[in-house]
Amino acid sequence: MLRKHARRSVVALGTAALILGWSPTAHADQVFHTTQYPLSSVAGESTHGWVIDVHTEGPRIYAQERYLLRDVDPGQTYVVNLYAYSDLDCGDIVVAVPGMATMTANASGNAHGAATFVPAAVEDLPRTTYYLRWQVTDGSGAAAYQTDCVAVALD
């Protein structure tokens, strides 16, 4: 008898959730999809990592970024900085966001970091296309790795 009532309760809860529009999963941004940008050495060497940019279109999280470095100096501390430009050549800076994340390379030369943007952090920015470059500095503050200049639409 108890199982019968429990089963009815689960069915009733599921029906109510559908009627009220509740969804148990987060929805991805319908304009901007998850993107990976390579982090290449400023000295012109090969790729040493990635910026993974995820927009979630949620009420608590606007976007999440993950930073990964590989084959770098073990024990070295790195800082991720984000620069937004108004032009395709990344020449006219609009916003600088230094110190997005700090990460230290492990003994194998791998490092990772993360940053989360809440909706309030971007609410005053015009909804337009920005041209972004992520730059990673080493412990001395010198630019070590960076992405190409990439277009990102702020929706």
Rank of each mutant, 00 (worst) to 15 (best):
2 L>I: 11
3 R>W: 10
3 R>T: 11
3 R>Q: 12
4 K>H: 09
5 H>F: 13
5 H>R: 12
5 H>I: 14
5 H>V: 14
5 H>M: 11
5 H>Y: 13
5 H>W: 12
6 A>K: 06
6 A>F: 10
6 A>P: 02
6 A>E: 09
7 R>L: 15
7 R>P: 01
7 R>A: 15
7 R>T: 12
8 R>C: 05
8 R>H: 08
10 V>I: 13
10 V>R: 08
10 V>K: 08
13 L>M: 10
14 G>R: 07
15 T>L: 14
15 T>V: 13
16 A>E: 01
16 A>F: 07
16 A>Q: 04
17 A>N: 04
18 L>K: 02
18 L>E: 03
18 L>A: 12
19 I>H: 05
19 I>Q: 00
20 L>K: 00
20 L>C: 10
21 G>R: 04
22 W>H: 08
22 W>P: 06
23 S>I: 00
23 S>Y: 06
24 P>N: 00
24 P>L: 05
25 T>R: 07
25 T>F: 11
26 A>W: 11
26 A>P: 05
26 A>K: 04
28 A>C: 05
28 A>V: 01
28 A>K: 05
28 A>N: 07
29 D>L: 02
30 Q>C: 07
30 Q>W: 05
31 V>K: 09
32 F>H: 09
33 H>W: 08
33 H>C: 02
33 H>S: 13
34 T>K: 11
35 T>N: 07
36 Q>V: 08
38 P>E: 09
38 P>C: 09
38 P>Q: 07
39 L>W: 04
39 L>F: 02
39 L>H: 00
39 L>V: 07
40 S>F: 00
41 S>D: 14
42 V>F: 04
42 V>N: 06
43 A>F: 02
43 A>T: 14
43 A>K: 10
44 G>T: 07
45 E>Y: 10
45 E>N: 15
45 E>L: 13
46 S>V: 11
46 S>H: 10
46 S>G: 15
47 T>Q: 15
48 H>V: 08
48 H>S: 08
49 G>T: 04
49 G>F: 06
50 W>Y: 15
50 W>C: 03
51 V>H: 03
52 I>N: 02
53 D>H: 09
54 V>F: 01
55 H>P: 01
56 T>S: 10
56 T>G: 07
57 E>C: 12
57 E>Q: 14
57 E>R: 10
59 P>F: 12
60 R>M: 12
62 Y>I: 01
63 A>Y: 03
64 Q>W: 05
64 Q>F: 03
64 Q>A: 11
65 E>P: 03
65 E>T: 11
66 R>Q: 13
66 R>M: 12
67 Y>I: 03
67 Y>H: 02
68 L>M: 09
68 L>G: 04
69 L>E: 05
69 L>D: 01
69 L>I: 04
71 D>F: 05
72 V>C: 02
72 V>F: 01
72 V>H: 03
72 V>S: 02
73 D>H: 10
74 P>D: 07
74 P>E: 05
74 P>L: 03
74 P>N: 06
76 Q>M: 15
76 Q>S: 13
76 Q>F: 01
76 Q>W: 03
78 Y>Q: 03
78 Y>V: 02
79 V>H: 03
79 V>S: 08
80 V>G: 00
80 V>Y: 02
80 V>M: 08
82 L>C: 01
83 Y>C: 04
83 Y>N: 11
85 Y>W: 01
88 L>N: 12
88 L>D: 14
